[in-house]
């Protein structure tokens, strides 16, 4: 094993896959420098033909990734901030997501849409969003939201090897997080949840930064409540079985989501728990998510985004 930061874990996955398959390339704004560091340095090894700096043109970054994927390449398209993916709405939600379906399954779209996501950096409404629910809502897109360096690397490798469009969102505040990964090559398959902490009293389901929040709270409460933290790791495909198994054991569930509460990822997971494990529940499921507002700039974001104290209060209340 070796210790590595989240940002290096993604970088390693990209490097390994670029080495493994010459059809893989990276396309986006400032990917040679790497705005967040995830693609930094790769240009030295692979050159500007495979680490492609584009003009400021998200629509063509997304659309060209689709066009190139359907004709034999495996692009990793980078959007810097997930907020900028909105600029390429049709290309992502209609072309990438639906093109295979509407062409009778004759088209393959092996591509990755990669971007930073999330708040807690005081960057305001258009550089802080967690848009998972939009992607999860859209049939045809897969969705990866890693929470540890180990998962970040293994899931990126799977995302690149997948023959479908995969949205890969890394949290900008997790990039410095350290964790252990094996020296040797490994992948983390899409669609397998991970039990990040075992417990018996309450199940907390979370992804991305919220996993780290939940783990912190679980540790703080360990004398009082035994918390099980489940990280689905990919929201599509969603490993609901692992979640349901946990809920059957604990009888209590809290879903934590950095995205807006209304119609968010938490709402969907909650609904599935209700459908599949209603008889096992000892208390109503709780949802901890962002308040139904845009994310305000500056210090005001604390009043909208979910905080560890909210998770703590919910666990204490549900375990009572």
């Amino acid at each position: 094993m070796k210790e590595i930061r989240f940002v290096q874990a993604i970088n390693e996955a990209l490097e390994e896959e670029l080495s493994r398959d010459e059809k893989v390339y990276i396309i986006g704004e400032d990917v040679q420098a790497g705005t967040f560091g995830v693609s930094t340095g790769l240009v030295h090894k692979f050159g500007p033909e495979r680490i492609m700096d584009t003009p400021l043109s998200e629509t063509v970054i997304a659309g060209a990734a689709v066009g190139s994927a359907m004709t034999g390449y495996r692009p990793v398209a980078e959007f810097m901030f997930a907020d900028f993916m909105y600029v390429a709405g049709d290309e992502i939600f209609a072309k990438a997501a639906k093109w295979r379906f509407i062409h009778g399954g004759t088209v393959e779209l092996p591509l990755v849409f990669m971007a930073s996501m999330g708040g807690y950096a005081k960057l305001g409404a258009e550089h802080s969003q967690s848009p998972e629910s939009m992607f999860m809502h859209t049939p045809g897109l897969k969705l990866v939201v890693p929470s540890t360096p180990y998962d970040a690397k293994g899931l990126m490798k799977s995302a690149i090897r997948d023959n479908n469009p995969v949205v890969y969102l890394f949290h900008k505040r997790l990039l410095g997080l350290k964790g252990e990964i094996p020296e040797e090559e490994y992948v983390v398959p899409l669609g397998q949840a991970d039990i990040k902490r075992e417990g018996t009293d309450v199940t907390v389901v979370a992804t991305g930064m919220m996993v780290q929040f939940a783990l912190k709270v679980a540790e703080e409460l360990k004398e009082k409540v035994s918390v099980e933290v489940i990280d689905p790791r990919t929201l599509e495909p969603l490993d609901i079985d692992t979640i349901i198994e946990s809920v059957k054991k604990t009888g209590r569930a809290i879903v934590v989501d950095e995205d807006t509460k209304r119609c968010g990822v938490a709402s969907e997971i909650m609904a599935q728990i209700m459908e599949l494990a209603f008889d096992y529940l000892d208390a109503p499921i709780q949802r901890i998510a962002a308040a139904n507002y845009p994310i305000p700039g500056g210090f005001m974001e604390d009043y909208v985004l979910p905080q560890t104290k909210d998770i703590k209060a919910a666990i204490e209340a549900i375990a009572d």
């Binding site: 400032d30 040679q32 700096d53 584009t54 003009p55 400021l56």
Partner: peptide, 11 residues
């Protein structure tokens, strides 16, 4: 320039 992108390579 646009961030790190020089105009000569983007237009």
């Amino acid at each position: 320039y646009a961030q790190y992108m020089p105009l000569k390579d983007s237009m």
